[in-house]
């Protein structure tokens, strides 16, 4: 038993998360039908980010994992964003 350190998440909690995720999905579809211009992508990405945060922290149990693992996951996303931004230093000014 000592080996199992994973937190048990109740069915109720999981279903609630799913409802939030579905709600957010429909919000994204709704938002893109308005013409927000350049902000559409921003909004869509923000919502996607929120959704992935929910999946990571609840479905993937990250909420209950060690601080170290949470930092590592955050680091990977930050690294990717930084690489994209740096690449755009080239493309935006060419």
């Amino acid at each position: 038993m000592a080996n199992n350190t994973t937190h048990t998440i109740e069915y109720r909690t999981l279903s609630k998360i799913l409802l939030v995720l579905l709600f957010l999905t429909f919000v994204t579809i709704g938002v893109t039908s308005f013409h927000l211009g350049p902000f559409t992508v921003t909004v869509a990405l923000l919502i996607a980010g929120l959704k992935s945060f929910l999946v990571l922290s609840n479905f993937m149990h990250l909420k209950y994992e060690s601080l170290l693992l949470r930092i590592l996951v955050a680091m990977v996303f930050v690294l990717f964003v930084v690489i994209v931004l740096i690449t755009f230093i080239d493309y935006a000014y060419r």
Partner: peptide
């Protein structure tokens, strides 16, 4: 897929 869906299907 959470990222793929808006980026592929929902870009205006």
């Amino acid at each position: 897929w959470i990222f793929l869906f808006p980026l592929m299907y929902l870009i205006s």
